[in-house]
């Protein structure tokens, strides 16, 4: 037991989770903004915009996240010299956030589109009847309802994002939990299972409330029809 407890003083475990939460937070904002724009492109009247949106989604959604983040760090930064400012470590953190946001934006886009499907036809028809064009109708009528209808898939995407933030390990973010766990179990062979369970339960503690809040929100915000 003492042996086990020593890992908490030897390694900064809460700090590792905090890094994952920060990665998730920034990537979630990025993914939400980019995903909304993509969703707008995909439902717009302009064919070329729709093509751009759907190519993005189909390309990104079928690519492993590992490759996307590796690409950001090795190719974008390493070969092309693209940086996102900050000091040396902050740059990797930001590149990883970029990779996470780019990847999850595709899923946010699809979640919003499924939300658009929950909006009854009459809403769009009414919007057109009172003379709203595409953008005003989308902004005032469709998207607000679509977001409320898309809370469950958006919540699922957020949960996936929390877990996927561990993939930042390939993006040189060595302080996040999967990297910390990796070095811990390599040096503390005697307590491999307790170490894994510590991290696993940490994620359960973060993920399950998000799931519960999602369900609660989706009921509370459901559009009464």
């Amino acid at each position: 037991m003492e042996n086990y407890l020593s890992i908490f003083t030897e390694y900064n475990i809460p700090g590792a989770f905090w890094v994952n939460i920060q990665l998730t937070f920034w990537a979630a904002i990025g993914a939400l903004v980019l995903g909304t724009v993509l969703a707008l492109l995909r439902i717009s009247p302009v064919a070329s915009f729709r093509a751009i949106g759907s190519s993005y989604v189909n390309l990104v959604r079928n690519t492993p996240l590992t490759i996307i983040i590796l690409f950001a760090v090795l190719a974008l930064y390493g070969q092309l010299g693209f940086t996102l400012g900050g000091d040396f470590q902050a740059n990797f953190f930001r590149l990883s956030v970029l990779g996470l946001a780019v990847y999850h934006a595709a899923f946010v886009c699809e979640a919003i589109r499924s939300g658009v499907n929950t909006v009854p036809l009459g809403q769009a028809e009414a919007a057109r009847a009172i003379g709203l064009g595409f953008m005003p109708a989308a902004r005032l009528i469709i998207l607000p309802q679509a977001f409320r209808g898309a809370i469950v898939p958006l919540g699922n995407t957020l949960i996936a994002l929390i877990k996927n933030s561990t993939v930042a390990a390939v993006g040189s973010v060595a302080t996040e939990s999967s990297s910390v766990m990796k070095s811990m179990i390599e040096f503390r062979a005697d307590i491999v299972i307790p170490i894994f369970l510590t991290f696993a339960i940490g994620f359960v503690i973060i993920v399950i409330p998000v799931g519960l809040v999602t369900t609660w929100l989706s009921k509370k915000l459901a559009v009464a029809r």
Binding site: V73, L74, Y77, G78, Q79, L80, G81, D87, F88, Q89, F92, A169, V170, S172, A174, S179
Partner: peptide, 21 residues
């Protein structure tokens, strides 16, 4: 020293050839 940690040495050398390391 600024540390960059990557999954393999091959990646490190790649980074150095790009001039960032």
């Amino acid at each position: 020293t600024n540390l960059q940690e990557l999954p393999g040495y091959a990646e490190c050398v790649t980074q150095m050839s790009g001039g960032t390391i």
